[in-house]
């Protein structure tokens, strides 16, 4: 109950910016919907995924802002006075951001579906014929998994940078940027080692993308790579939680 209550509070905090982005995305897709015709469909298909580039940036911004705002508005006193662990607080914030991301993605996907289905003949004329043979379930499934990981990575990297900058009274922006750069660098170095360390794990699945040609379009997902990616997010989550609960002062 306590975690749900915290999560609701976080959801309420993020809802304004989330709603603003949702409305902007909706306006964008409405615009594309009315502009889509045989002569413009190639341009439309070129820009239709633009909001999906914006959303990780939104998560990056939220990751940075979520704790810096608590400190700026002194509400961190309330948060740190609660009998809640750092894990619960960080998780509640992340789940709120994740829910907003899912809503944004669902709305955008609906927009894309409506535009494509409404102009299906024009779309099928400009797309290569192999597209029809794609295993769309696999493509979308793995695409979404990678996309979510990327958004989570952006969120936790920004959050960790923002929390680390609280150790300093001056040049917080500079510290945030430096830590952000360092975390990215170290993460990808670490990912290499972790991937090697978990190399013994079996590859998770082979997806045949082109159903018509047996050997072509195989996606081989390395078990080690997956474990490394999951572990990196987990490490960032744990470090942020520990910093908040045991080290950072108000």
């Amino acid at each position: 109950m306590a975690l749900i209550s915290l999560w609701k509070k976080e959801l309420r905090e993020i809802s304004f910016s989330g709603l603003a982005l949702l409305l902007l995305s909706a306006a964008f897709y409405v615009f594309l919907y009315y502009q889509a015709r045989p002569g413009t469909i190639q341009i439309i298909l070129g820009v239709i995924y633009l909001p999906f580039i914006i959303y990780p940036l939104f998560l990056l911004f939220q990751g940075y802002r979520t704790f810096s705002r608590e400190w700026r508005e002194k509400t961190i006193f309330l948060l740190k006075s609660l009998p809640r662990s750092g894990y619960e607080i960080v998780l509640a914030k992340f789940l709120a951001a994740a829910v907003v991301l899912i809503i944004l993605m669902a709305a955008s996907s609906t927009g894309i579906y409506l535009i494509i289905s409404h102009n299906f003949t024009a779309v099928s004329q400009v797309l290569p014929p192999e597209f029809a043979a794609l295993n769309w379930g696999a493509v979308l499934g793995w695409g979404l998994a990678v996309y979510f990981w990327l958004c989570g990575f952006a969120y936790f990297t920004a959050q960790l940078s923002s929390l680390t900058s609280r150790f300093f009274n001056r040049f917080r922006w500079l510290v945030t940027l430096l830590v952000f750069y360092l975390v990215n660098y170290l993460t990808f170095r670490l990912a290499g080692y972790l991937g090697w360390l978990f190399d013994w794990l079996p590859d998770v699945q082979h997806f045949v993308i082109r159903q018509t040609e047996e050997a072509a379009g195989l996606i081989e997902v390395s078990g080690g790579g997956l474990a490394a990616a999951a572990l990196i997010l987990l490490i960032m989550f744990v470090v942020s939680s520990l910093l908040l609960e045991r080290t950072l002062e108000v």
């Binding site: 508005e73 002194k74 509400t75 006193f77 809640r84």
Partner: peptide, 22 residues
């Protein structure tokens, strides 16, 4: 605490419920 540590957008009843759950 000495500071104004309450969320400005919250209503008093919301805060009471929030504290009751925490």
């Amino acid at each position: 605490p000495e500071n104004d540590y309450l969320y400005s957008w919250m209503k008093l009843e919301y805060l009471i419920e929030f504290f009751a759950r925490q």
